[in-house]
Design a protein around this nucleic acid. Sequence first.
DNA 1: CGCGACGGTTGAAACGCGTCAACGCTGCCC
DNA 2: GGGCAGCGTTGACGCGTTTCAACCGTCGCG
Lengths: 339, 339
Amino acid sequence: MENMETTSIKEVAHRAGVSLGTVSNVLNRPHLVADTTRQRVLEAIRELGYVRNDSARQLRAGRSRTIAIVVLDVSNPFFTDVIRGAEEAIDAAGAVAVVCNSGQSAARERRHLELLEEQRVQGVLITPVDGGRDSQLVNLIKRGVPVVLVDRGIWQSDRCSVAVDDVLGGRIAGQHFRELGHDHVAFVGGPLTIPQVADRQRGFESVLSGVRVRTFLTPELTVAAGRQAGHAIADLPAPDRPTAVFCANDLLALGLLQEMTQRGINVPDEVAILGYDDIDFAAAAAVPLSSVRQPREHLGRAAAELLLEETRSPDTHAHRNLVFHPELVARKSTARPGR
Amino acid sequence: MENMETTSIKEVAHRAGVSLGTVSNVLNRPHLVADTTRQRVLEAIRELGYVRNDSARQLRAGRSRTIAIVVLDVSNPFFTDVIRGAEEAIDAAGAVAVVCNSGQSAARERRHLELLEEQRVQGVLITPVDGGRDSQLVNLIKRGVPVVLVDRGIWQSDRCSVAVDDVLGGRIAGQHFRELGHDHVAFVGGPLTIPQVADRQRGFESVLSGVRVRTFLTPELTVAAGRQAGHAIADLPAPDRPTAVFCANDLLALGLLQEMTQRGINVPDEVAILGYDDIDFAAAAAVPLSSVRQPREHLGRAAAELLLEETRSPDTHAHRNLVFHPELVARKSTARPGR
DNA sequence: CGCGACGGTTGAAACGCGTCAACGCTGCCC
DNA sequence: GGGCAGCGTTGACGCGTTTCAACCGTCGCG
């Protein structure tokens, strides 16, 4: 077991009394090697603590077995769930997933992509900082590396992508309020420069013609921003207050909920609240939060499968842009008053 | 830009009219190359879209520039914060961080470690599934790969580690209750096979001699388990009910809080609740949750720095086992009654 | 003015390690 | 004896790095 730092296939061959190629065969095509020889080689490998040098292997193979998942923010539960789904599929295919965190920084994303390109990764699954126009990413694609966009830039036909239909999500929210009989509702979210937010708003309003809809723009999608919006809504005199509020994500909804609870405004009787994402904490809130759920793990799995498909048959592969449907998870925060 | 798949340093050299070595010098020791030549080479690189082959480079160098962070669960905020801290330090050192998720599975951890070893990573920062006795991890260390344990196995002297003093965290909790004048308190947590949980309990009880302390064991550290414990506590007749509860983590505390709120038991007036971890949602709970905060990012940064130090001077390096101190973050859930 | 020395480059070749295709040896069967 | 498996070996190859000898032009000294 000692002297491991420099153990190469050559020493294994020497110790086992065979040639280099045989050792290689034992490792890669064991059926070609006679039983006794194979045993001897495996024995030598064990004794020397030999570990294959992946650099050399890759150098010859021209590509690696790893698939990279580049996310905007590892601490966002949305992405961690996407990661889990993708890992599942990648694992099942015998590849290995590594996660890179761009942390919303274009510079870090670029650094990661550069390295990944140098490492000749098998493919990249990415939620790009800038929607996928970055030159580094374009280079990667030009080079023939399969790339799948996750939840961004679904309109680009030169690559695969997966996303969730946010307009539909908004529609589902509006529909839900309609069915509950609300005739004065509100949308809380922002900034509208985030396509997801704008889409959700658009879908929401599109099914609410004839209903009074107010909009409260927020500077970000956080609990604090939700609280502030809640402040503004609670300050309205009761007759002028919307009876149902759709928030662009669950954090906003949780903030809103807290503010309402603190102000003594009953949820859902006086104000119904509907979130988006269905994060784990939604169900666990003081008043269990209704939410529009995105199939996060599914999204990741589908993305990984598109990627794997492309790596397996790059020639016949046709790029696809999958769009998933969100679904309503109704809980107490939008229960019909009086229930 | 075309024909990129096979572009090698050789073609660059040819196109620039220089030799291989010169191109290599341009890439690695540009000061050794005359200005005009360098420009010519850079130009050729750009024109051909050349990207260095990291496998070949590593094959020669014997080791890579990447540092792996292997965590138990990417969707746990504790780890994502640790990751962020570690990435900061790794980035600053010019290395690259990749994250591997073992998902609590020893098999996946093993697979990842095997691959990392084959890739000759510069170092590994890991929270091992089994406390660090896994043979794959031991192999890695034998081989001379720097390994730093995170929040596990601090007693092992053959490697560096970082951890947070959970006994102290428990003491801080107990001390807090003492100062608030509680004379009947409870600990909620489990299973005690998790060292962190056992340590917190031990510390908690150690400073509460003379105080009545009940223990409610939970099967896991989740919101649901917290709710169940809350159920049991709320069922106690008021005089027999503890006036302050210390939970082994914030999820339990949030579940407990919800149950209390739902049962109409006032927090903190009738029951004070103290959590552990100070996750983002703690401050955002219906009643802002007091918690014992662990310096998560700091932990990650320190771990990465130990690792980097070891990679830089493997000979003079002495293993260290850093222990960090948690701190109390007092919010409303443990405010003095009547305030 | 001529020659050697010197600072500063350049280019050929060896090297790191595993993979794979082509080839060679043994022994057996018909 | 010819042919065929079955097994193992040989050697070229992938690509960037590094070493070292050779080379260039310039400068100083005699």
